[in-house]
Amino acid sequence: MSQPPGKRSPLILPALVFLLVIGVVEGVIFSYKGKLYSEQRLQALTFAADLRSNAERELNNVLYLTRGLSSYFSVRHDSLERDEILSILRVAYQTSPLIRNFGVAVNYRLTYVYPPEGNQAAIGLDYRELESQWPDVKRAVEQRRPVLSEGVDLLQGGKAFVYRDPIYVDDAYWGLLSTVIDAEPLLDAMFGVMEGDSRHRFSVRANRRNQQPVHLWGDDALFHQDGVVRLTSGRDWEFVVQTRTGDTHWLPIFTLRIFGWVLALVAALGTYSAVLHRRQRLVPGSRDRKSALE
């Protein structure tokens, strides 16, 4: 049999009201957090896209000369002389402060280098004898397209990006044009300006075929963390971005939660008072008996 209304605990309904209000408030907070997360992901993705765009722009500003030089050498290969080749390389070298040197290999032997100062150790080298560089040279020749090598340790000392463009004459391999770019100033031009964004942390690496990735910028540990935004480029570069604003919205969430608990408590107390008042009205003569006992 069910309990008479007067025998039920007066706390049941207030407790249910309290839990209902808390549930509604927590649902609102959950929805708010979801919206914040979506906005932060979108901002991080936009930032990653800007990183990729800036990297491509800065790199292309340096490399556009290489394709033009390759075409020129392909057409003029029969009439080119040493002084003319070096003059052409000198003019191209002066167009960008990021270029460390240009090199022209006839067949696979590096024959012309500009500027020669500081690069004497490279002149006359055969790429086939360089274990660290030969795979990329071979790939460029076989695929008949330029190949960018990141983080190359140069024989002259230092690290660089090397852009190798194979030269074909009458469908036959003739030689290779290499553009050597100082890594540090190029990377700073690509990503240094982006470090000023206080809302995001980022890291960049180049994923190389059958080799370990080459770390280019930022904290490499970001690649092993959850919740980051990842973006790749046509050069097999990978960009990861982590938002720094994950905890900046704690105050409105904390305020909303406190407000919710206070509202739930007030609603529960109001319900409890209403239940007691209703009980007194439903029990006949309760007030008369209470007066008689007094």
Rank of each mutant, 00 (worst) to 15 (best):
9 S>D: 10
11 L>S: 15
12 I>Q: 08
13 L>Y: 11
13 L>T: 13
14 P>S: 11
14 P>K: 02
15 A>L: 13
15 A>V: 12
17 V>E: 08
18 F>T: 07
18 F>N: 09
19 L>D: 09
19 L>N: 05
20 L>A: 08
23 G>I: 05
23 G>W: 07
24 V>N: 02
24 V>P: 09
24 V>W: 02
25 V>T: 12
26 E>S: 02
28 V>A: 04
28 V>E: 03
29 I>K: 09
29 I>R: 08
29 I>P: 01
30 F>H: 15
31 S>T: 14
31 S>W: 11
31 S>H: 15
31 S>N: 14
32 Y>W: 08
32 Y>F: 12
32 Y>Q: 08
32 Y>K: 06
33 K>V: 03
34 G>S: 12
34 G>M: 10
35 K>D: 15
35 K>I: 14
35 K>H: 14
36 L>G: 06
36 L>M: 08
38 S>Y: 07
39 E>R: 07
39 E>S: 07
39 E>D: 10
40 Q>I: 04
40 Q>F: 00
40 Q>P: 02
40 Q>V: 02
41 R>E: 08
42 L>D: 11
42 L>A: 10
42 L>P: 07
42 L>Y: 05
43 Q>N: 09
46 T>P: 00
46 T>S: 07
47 F>S: 01
47 F>C: 01
48 A>N: 01
49 A>C: 00
49 A>V: 01
49 A>K: 00
50 D>M: 04
51 L>R: 04
52 R>E: 15
53 S>P: 00
53 S>Y: 05
54 N>I: 13
54 N>C: 08
54 N>V: 13
56 E>T: 08
57 R>K: 14
59 L>R: 05
59 L>I: 11
64 Y>C: 09
65 L>C: 09
65 L>S: 14
65 L>K: 13
65 L>G: 15
66 T>K: 06
67 R>N: 15
68 G>E: 14
68 G>F: 12
69 L>R: 09
70 S>N: 12
70 S>E: 12
72 Y>V: 07
73 F>G: 10
73 F>K: 14
74 S>L: 03
74 S>N: 04
75 V>D: 00
76 R>E: 09
76 R>K: 15
77 H>R: 10
77 H>G: 05
78 D>W: 10
78 D>P: 09
78 D>S: 12
79 S>R: 15
80 L>A: 06
81 E>M: 04
82 R>M: 05
83 D>P: 02
83 D>G: 02
83 D>S: 03
86 L>K: 00
87 S>E: 03
90 R>H: 09
91 V>D: 10
91 V>E: 11
92 A>M: 05
93 Y>C: 03
94 Q>F: 03
94 Q>E: 08
95 T>V: 06
95 T>R: 14
96 S>H: 12
96 S>Y: 11
97 P>Q: 06
98 L>N: 07
99 I>P: 01
99 I>E: 02
100 R>C: 02
101 N>H: 15
101 N>K: 14
